[in-house]
């Protein structure tokens, strides 16, 4: 089992003929992901990487019945690309694009919430992978391996770092979800934690947060009701307030979003918070043993 994506996921790639889209679509196909359609306005009727390309999402949906979409469209047009997927009622959309205006995301997030038919993951995220079944994103597939650990993270490369250590320690993953580093993500920690709690194959969860916002605190509140153990890691413990650390969402402002607040909330919820990434596999092993 897994969450959100599996071997039956049929992926539409919006912006597939661009440089980024081409490269990653190719990597996904090589990983074994079913990429069924590409969408690039003006390139309909052509074939790219052996996949049919359409002018619009509606045409692609009618012809190929995708049940997920991956968006690589440049930031100025990314919000529109997500809404186009929503208009065709694609149930799951992952938005990789970085640098999307916050007001665009404000519109998109609220529109999707009202419509209730599409779940958005991202933007500014590395995507999602169910090892051995479906890679829908930009992560290096070879470091992941199937197993019982669910992972949810705001950071792409920090996910790779920790997954690499988990895999080396013999701890495979059910699904790894990148929720992204933007201030208004389509999916938040709480929602992914709920899915892992409900997934029978997931035995423990690794949660990787960072400074900024209060989503880790909201996640901690939900964790109090979870039956599965959670190990967390928070990056940016030495970042100064008022400075944006690369990710648009990684900023301590007005006393909000401090690492202390997050660690405190998580520990109060019974979460073991690792001081270093290298401690994560050991803490997960200990948590699994306690459970058995």
């Amino acid at each position: 089992m897994s969450i959100l994506v599996n071997k039956d996921t049929r992926v539409l790639v919006s912006g597939m003929t661009g440089r980024e889209g081409s490269f990653h679509a190719q990597q996904m196909i090589e990983y074994g992901t079913q990429v069924v359609a590409g969408v690039t306005p003006g390139k309909g009727g052509t074939t790219h990487l052996g996949v049919p390309v359409f002018d619009t999402v509606a045409e692609a949906v009618a012809a190929t019945q995708p049940n997920a979409a991956l968006v690589f469209v440049p930031a100025p047009f990314a919000a529109d690309a997500v809404l186009e997927c929503e208009a065709s009622e694609i149930p799951f959309v992952t938005l990789i694009t970085e640098g999307i205006p916050i007001n665009d995301m404000l519109r998109v997030v609220n529109k999707l919430e009202q419509g209730g038919k599409t779940r958005l993951l991202g933007g500014n995220c590395a995507g999602i992978i169910t090892p051995g079944e479906c890679k829908m994103g930009i992560m290096p597939g070879h470091i992941f391996t199937p197993g019982p650990i669910g992972m949810v993270s705001r950071s792409g490369t920090l996910t790779y770092e920790i997954v690499f250590e988990l895999t080396n320690a013999g701890l495979g993953q059910t699904t790894c979800v990148g929720i992204g580093g933007d201030p208004l993500p389509g999916t938040r920690f709480v929602e992914v934690l709920q899915m892992f709690e409900a997934d029978p194959a997931t035995q423990a969860v690794v949660m990787v947060g960072e400074i900024g916002g209060s989503d880790e605190e909201a996640g901690a509140e939900y964790i109090q009701q979870m039956t599965k153990p959670v190990v967390a890691f928070i990056s940016g413990r030495t970042a100064p307030p008022g400075k944006r650390m690369g990710h648009a969402g990684a900023i301590i402002s007005g006393g909000m979003g401090t690492p202390e607040s997050k660690v405190r909330a998580l520990e109060a919820a019974g979460v073991t918070v690792a001081d270093k990434t290298s401690e994560v596999p050991g803490l997960i092993q200990a948590a699994l043993q306690v459970r058995v």
């Binding site: 993270s153 705001r154 950071s155 792409g156 490369t157 920090l158 996910t159 770092e161 580093g181 990787v208 960072e210 400074i211 990056s235 940016g236 413990r237 030495t238 970042a239 400075k243 650390m245 690369g246 990710h247 990684a250 001081d275 270093k276 990434t277």
Partner: peptide, 25 residues
């Protein structure tokens, strides 16, 4: 220097933990 905001922040944290003072992100 690192790649990805989370990994860079984490590298700064590690430098501090090792007794150093990061010059930058």
């Amino acid at each position: 220097i690192g790649n990805g905001a989370g990994l860079v922040m984490c590298s700064m944290d590690e430098v501090t933990a090792a007794g150093g003072r990061p010059a930058n992100f």
